[in-house]
Nucleic acid binder design. Structure first.
Lengths: 228, 228
DNA sequence: TTCATACTTCGATCGTAACCGAAGCATTCT
DNA sequence: AGAATGCTTCGGTTACGATCGAAGTATGAA
């Protein structure tokens, strides 16, 4: 009624269940077509189409035409972070889409969050990097140490080249299943990409789950030991 | 449609304009009565009442009865942070409640954000604290240095006692008008309280503005110089 | 006790937006 | 060219929820 930005528009966009489900699906990070998103939202293609155009004009989605497909992604990392933090709040207030319980253990273990690793394994990875002195943590802030830079080089990640991108190198992202932070930012993305390149992990189609191969799991756990 | 927390409920709660305005008003940090919030939302008391009970059962608000008044506050600092970050996103997408323009210069200069100082002065304060080595900043994370601890002691703030509270000492909070970080957390709160105690600053009733006395402004600017 | 204030609940109205069927474009494949 | 796929637009229905008037409850003041 007074001054300031209009929260209500964004809230209303996220407030519709169909749209919320589509946004949640896009938190998986990969670009999805209108048809796929319609399925994710549990609605017909026509309805999805109007929802998607609303989300786009609202600035939450970006689209890119490719042949006869139209691929949608979250507009921004800022949007992804908003969605995740709303998930965190929703989880802490007990708003669940289904009955709570021992749901989906695979998803709690390792999943995609936008473009990086989340879940138990994501949290463990960050904890281990901090414990080994590769990453400095102050509050919510994260920074790679010189030592970390050389350690990551050994794994096959060139931190120097990541720094040049405009996107922040490290970010902490609050995990809704673990209620603890995991590693986002371009480094988080690079690490996950690295694991998938090596064949340690792969995404499960149509899901946010990430599964590790037996060998990959062994390597991952060795590389990121738990602080005792 | 699948697993995970339900964003839509929270989104829908924030998505109604009347409710959004009430929440924004509560970002001012002080507890407000149902009648005051009805005015803030531009609706009658009956309507406000139903909205408020929805917000409360949704976990966004806390209330406390006091005599025949019922005071509402944001449930949590997490809620306050969510609102502020939605304001940031809304501002960056150009969703404004009124026509944009050179609006409300007082509000851009200094205002309350939940319980700490925001706006130009809030950003300046944090910048200065970081530049002088009183606060370490890594990414979004902030930490008071030993040196900062003694400097703050001189101003009249005992960092040690603040540390014992469960709430984080320092937090960065993104400013929607400046698009830069200012200082939140218990230290941010303590600093603002300190200024008001000394008579440097006071709140404008019915608004989020904070105004400085001529003397207070002089002292503040001297205490927190701009890095050249 | 009586009155006033602060707020909630009830009941009814009204508007908006979510929804889908059907038809219309656009792109690619054959 | 014709057919198939992917998506958008149109039209009409439906349902939900925001709204307020009026009545009800609780607390405090006179």
């Amino acid at each position: 009624m007074k001054e300031g930005p209009d929260i209500a528009q964004i809230g209303a966009l996220i407030g519709d269940p169909a749209r919320a489900n589509m946004l949640a699906a896009l938190t998986g990070g990969r670009a999805l077509t209108a048809t796929e998103l319609a399925a994710a939202g549990g609605i017909t293609l026509q309805t999805a189409s109007t929802h998607l155009s609303k989300l786009e004009t609202g600035g939450l989605l970006a689209q890119r035409k490719q042949g006869r497909h139209r691929y949608f992604t979250l507009a921004d990392e800022a949007v992804a972070r908003l969605i995740e933090s709303m998930m965190g709040l929703a989880a802490s207030r007990g708003h669940l889409r289904h009955q709570p319980g021992p749901k989906d253990p695979a998803l709690r273990k390792a999943r995609i969050c936008y473009d990086h690793l989340a879940g138990d394994y994501g949290v463990r990875m960050l904890d281990s990097l901090v414990a080994s002195g590769s990453i400095d943590a102050i509050g919510d802030g994260l920074a790679v140490t010189p030592r970390g830079e050389s350690e990551l080089q050994c794994i096959g990640i060139d931190v120097g080249s990541l720094k040049s991108s405009r996107r922040p190198l490290c970010r902490s992202c609050l995990d809704w299943s673990e209620r603890r932070a995991h590693l986002a930012g371009s480094l988080g993305k690079a690490l996950l990409a690295n694991f998938m390149e090596k064949g340690w992990a792969r995404r499960v189609p149509e899901s946010r789950s990430v599964v590790f191969s037996p060998e990959g799991e062994r390597q991952f756990l060795k590389l990121f030991p738990l602080e005792s």
